[in-house]
Design a protein around this nucleic acid. Structure first.
Length: 326
RNA sequence: UACCUCGAGUUGAC
């Protein structure tokens, strides 16, 4: 059973079609006579949930109950996350109520899923209240044994909420609270914080946060560099942003298409089409495949520079597919 | 306090 659980859940991570997981699930009972357990159902629910198939997910919940397999908080968390991603806050909330009525107690993931959903709907204050509720539950009578003290991802989600709400000081305060709570911020948290600075044009704060991250021994990853370069570009500092290409290699991070696209766009906005073209050359030399965004950016950059032949050349020769709508 | 089931951050135009 554990083998099938692993196969089903990894089929999601590996990006295999959902039917592969359904097939495995069917095979384990019909061919091997095995009984799926909670984890099996949870894994399959996660697969069909990722497909956005809420009906089937609900059917599986019903099926597991009929088979005498009690859903746990993971099951409900998965369903809450699925509804949240579909923007169905009502269904997400109802699922939480159902979980509570089954005697399941919320975990940090429960709150984080809901916060993420409220935040995506622009309901920032509701998302923030949820975090507060989680803390209250975590400091109750059960004290340190309670599973509901905010964890790294919960804090991370809160920082992201403040980022989206444009509340940078609150985001900073959360990061500080994390340090004091013994849950030091990781690259994802710093990514949200730096993006918050970037959106407000607070470039120096963004770079300072980056330096502090390094001094804390936290390794910058690919999205972090991309976020930092975008922040610099947004402030018109595209050349300074491009200097981070070397820096990221020095950190063992290989730039991807997002990195190059960010810089091409930054140079375009700064009125430096020749620099944008240089970035494109470096991209090709590095063996990074241009995507449709690269193509669209280059066509626009070259056209607005009056370099119509170059634009036409990119349009014809560069991969990345499609582009018709562009 | 028990091994791989759920939740967090990144690029253009429209």
């Amino acid at each position: 059973v554990v083998t099938f659980n692993t196969l089903i859940s990894s089929s999601l991570k590996a990006g295999f079609p959902a039917n592969r997981a359904r097939q495995l699930f069917a095979e384990m009972t019909s061919r091997w006579g095995l009984s799926p357990n909670v984890r099996t159902y949870n894994a399959l629910i996660a697969v069909v949930g990722a497909e956005g198939n809420a009906r089937e997910a609900q059917r599986l919940l019903q099926q597991m109950r009929e088979e005498g397999v009690a859903p746990d908080m993971f099951t409900f968390n998965t369903l809450i996350g699925m509804h949240g991603q579909a923007g169905d806050l009502e269904a997400a909330q109802m699922t939480l109520d159902e979980a509570l009525s089954c005697g399941c107690s919320p975990t940090p993931a429960t709150y984080t899923s809901l916060m993420s959903a409220y935040s995506a709907a622009g309901r920032y204050s509701d998302a923030i209240s949820l975090f507060q509720r989680m803390k209250e539950q975590g400091t109750g009578v059960q004290g340190s044994h309670c599973r509901c003290r905010p964890d790294l991802r919960a804090y991370s989600c809160l920082v992201s909420v403040y980022k989206d709400a444009g509340m940078v000081e609150e985001a900073e305060a959360v990061v500080q609270e994390m340090r004091e709570a013994g849950t030091p911020p990781n690259a994802v948290v710093y990514g949200s914080l730096i993006q918050a600075y970037g959106r407000l044009g607070m470039v120096e704060q963004a770079v300072t946060a980056f330096d502090r991250m390094l001094s804390e021994g936290c390794a910058p990853d690919l999205p972090l560099f991309n976020i930092l370069m975008a922040a610099l570009c947004k402030a018109g500092l595209s050349s300074r942003a491009a200097s981070f290409l070397r820096r990221m290699r020095a950190c063992g991070v290989t730039p991807d298409a997002v990195s190059y696209n960010t810089l091409i766009h930054g140079h375009f906005q700064a009125g430096l089409p020749a620099e944008a073209e240089k970035i494109f050359e470096r991209m090709k030399k590095a063996g990074c495949e241009p995507d449709r965004i690269t193509k669209s950016l280059l066509v626009r950059t070259f056209n607005e520079a009056g370099w119509h032949d170059k634009a036409a050349g990119v349009w014809r020769r560069v991969g990345g597919g499609g582009g018709e709508r562009d």
